[in-house]
């Protein structure tokens, strides 16, 4: 009961959705699933959010290291929840959109979440530099190919590429870096992309079949 029913559910639902692609009256099942998923996800959040709350409360309660930051997290969580659920400061009241301009939630989003998100994202500039340093110390043939390809594309996207190779005569213009970059993007790059995508397509087929046939079932836990 504890594992057989879920296995049956996985098998039946999976099979129905595979076949639905070929059956016009069943083609909207994918969208229906998406709606189901969205609603289940809200309930799951009670577990996730509850867990976040519990972990930080426990940290504060037991005065663990850095518990002060847990207080900050809890306050941030509860304040946002209160403002958002009761639509505090919303110019259109409780019936207005949660993202209405000037609403409390929108202010939180613009003043706190947006700068934090953009800065976290911007850290990539430094990380990409350190990763480039590592990748560009070509240790073997494969790394050298990666390096050359990246370098050509990088230069091809900047005026430097044309400055360096603009002197190459027209009949050999393919060797001008910007042209070479376009050629790499549209040929060798495409070949690599396609082999990855075809492989992924086949990999998903095999993995899905293993799940639907109940061969891979660790995600269901045990009978106990």
């Amino acid at each position: 009961m504890k594992r057989t029913v879920p296995l049956l559910i996985t098998g039946i639902v999976g099979t129905v959705l595979i076949v639905s692609v070929l059956i016009p009256p069943a083609q909207s099942l994918g969208e229906d699933f998406s709606l189901f998923f969205d609603i289940i996800a809200v309930f799951a959040f009670f577990l996730g959010g509850g867990n976040l709350f519990r972990i930080h409360l426990k940290k504060v309660f037991h005065r663990k290291e850095d518990y002060g930051f847990s207080i900050v997290t809890l306050v941030g969580f509860l304040v946002t929840l209160t403002i958002g659920l009761f639509k505090i400061g919303n110019p259109e009241g409780i019936s207005g959109s949660i993202t209405a301009a000037g609403s409390g939630l929108q202010t939180i989003f613009v003043s706190i979440i947006t700068p934090l998100s953009s800065t976290m994202y911007a850290l990539l500039a430094f990380y990409v530099a350190s990763a480039s340093y590592r990748a560009f110390r070509a240790k073997n043939r494969e790394a050298t190919i990666l390096l050359v390809s990246a370098f050509v594309i990088l230069l091809g996207r900047t005026p430097l590429g044309m400055m360096l190779t603009g002197w190459i005569p027209e009949q050999f213009s393919i060797f001008q870096i910007p042209n070479l970059a376009v050629w790499i993007m549209n040929s060798a790059n495409l070949a690599g992309q396609r082999s990855i995508l075809i492989g992924v397509g086949l990999g998903v087929v095999a993995m899905s079949l293993r799940l639907i046939l109940g061969m891979d079932r660790t995600y269901l836990g045990s009978d106990k």
Binding site: I39, F45, S70, V72, G76, F77, G84, I112, I113
Partner: peptide, 19 residues
């Protein structure tokens, strides 16, 4: 700490009202 707390709350509010 601010990011985690505020964004988790924000997402729950979004899930609640949207879904």
């Amino acid at each position: 700490a601010i990011f985690v707390g505020v964004s988790a709350g924000y997402w729950f509010v979004t899930y609640f009202w949207d879904n």
